[in-house]
Design a protein around this nucleic acid. Structure first.
Lengths: 261, 261
DNA sequence: CGTGCCAGGTGCCCT
DNA sequence: AGGGCACTTGGCACG
């Protein structure tokens, strides 16, 4: 297996940096570190005065501009962009100008460097997909398998491949045979989640005599709880500490089933 | 001004890489490129089989793990983490293990490298704040200044420093003196945005005789439009192409005002 | 493609 | 710290 070497150049002049970008953009994972101004125009518009940043250009056309703080890039562009590098005279200096643009929506990010500290490029190949456990989907499926964790006697309909019933997470009937809509959340439910449940239940109440609505979440905000009571809906506390440990088995079971399906 | 040089080492062995991480983590912007497995345990849980990735560790404790595609990091941690580097025997190989953890919530990301292609560290200092134009806040303020763009004769209350009236974007009365709540959106409004307006208006209708509700957005989904009609609410189309160009003046005006305030 | 909705969402501001 | 909400949200699945 060939070890892809990293090309690194320290403190290149604008011309060298420009060639470097042209050579590797859209091809390898390209990095630029240096002082630059950044302008963005597209869905919104932004300007960023000169400062030192790390620029990442992925082979798929993704742009990321990171400052020294925080998770979110200070500027970015989604995959599918095209990159241009040029050298221009600006304020009597020769500068590297890198633009990254895309269409629909039309957007452009322009980076004007007053100094390039480092440029490097390398191949990274990643064939693996992230396996994520503990999503809302996981919790839903657990509750489908163990409906008593929602409420004693609750029995969900099988909506596996029948989304025509609607976007409800769980739909079934309670111990008294009353239709019951359940909206599942993996974290503290707020007013927005309560509203979402209310909307689903309202639709069902238009069609049927009596419909209960349950918001199943590890916690609920006070405002949301009040809203639920106003709308004749209920909160159902989920004990994530008990549920989460069951998730790995669930995934294991599904892999096994996959062998047959 | 001292030019911060980048420290770069290519293909370090695990021990060297370990020292490098210990030396720079939490101090400079640290990068690792190489093949690794990644495990995350915290609010959820994830596993990622061995593949080549770019790891970024910012001085503020932010962790970013990027693969070769997409805007979102495949794993991450927000600022405030602590980093540990160790060398361990695993499957008969000596491997670099880097862990990044934090508390409240308790979370840990563990990276086990089977190869480090490159490690580098450098200082980037960025004192500048992004100036973003065309946010929802901008559009709100424009409409406050030019209420006729919402509707002929609309007059908003001055809620500048009085949030007690509620979280409504705009609140005023129309040409007939009828109370009118306006929810502003910068992009196509969907069912969620319609629901949000409905919630605000419902509260006001509980307190007052007659209240109109306007969803002001560049567009609205069909479902949302229907929902608005059902709830006796209205859609108000915003012409962003006409509004956006006015935003720069708005910001300029506010800077000027800032000189006096 | 539009529309809805989850996300380990993140970040901001307010109480 | 809790809570509501915008975000150049991004990403996916479905009609």
């Amino acid at each position: 297996m060939p070890v892809a070497e990293a090309d690194v150049i320290a403190g290149p002049d604008p011309e060298d940096a420009c060639c470097f970008v042209r050579e590797h953009a859209g091809n390898r994972l390209l990095q630029l570190v240096g002082g630059c101004t950044i302008d963005y125009q597209g869905r919104a518009k932004s300007q960023l005065a000169s400062g030192e940043r790390l620029i990442l250009l992925k082979p798929d056309g993704t742009l990321l501009v990171h400052s020294d703080e925080g998770v979110k890039p200070v500027n970015w562009q989604p995959p599918g962009t095209t990159t241009t590098a040029d050298v221009r005279e600006l304020d009597g200096d020769t500068r590297l100008i890198v633009t990254v643009e895309r269409s629909s929506p039309d957007e452009i990010v322009t980076m004007a460097f007053d100094r390039v500290t480092m440029a490097c490029a390398f191949d990274i190949e990643d064939w693996e997909d992230l396996e994520l456990l503990g999503t809302e989907e996981d919790i839903q499926q657990l509750l489908r398998l163990h409906p008593d964790l929602v409420e004693e006697g609750f029995e969900p309909y099988d909506m596996e491949l029948d989304r025509r019933r609607g976007p409800m997470d769980l739909y079934g009937h309670d111990v008294h045979g009353t239709r019951t809509v359940v909206e599942v959340k993996r974290r503290t439910a707020g007013i927005e989640e309560a509203t979402q449940l209310a909307r689903y239940v309202e639709r069902e109440r238009d069609k049927h005599e009596e419909v209960r609505g349950l918001l199943a979440a590890p916690d609920v905000s006070e405002t949301a709880h009040k809203y639920l009571r106003d709308k004749d809906l209920e909160f159902c506390e989920l004990d994530l500490d008990r549920l989460m440990p069951k998730v790995p088995q669930l995934h294991a079971t599904q892999e096994t089933l996959g062998d047959f399906g």
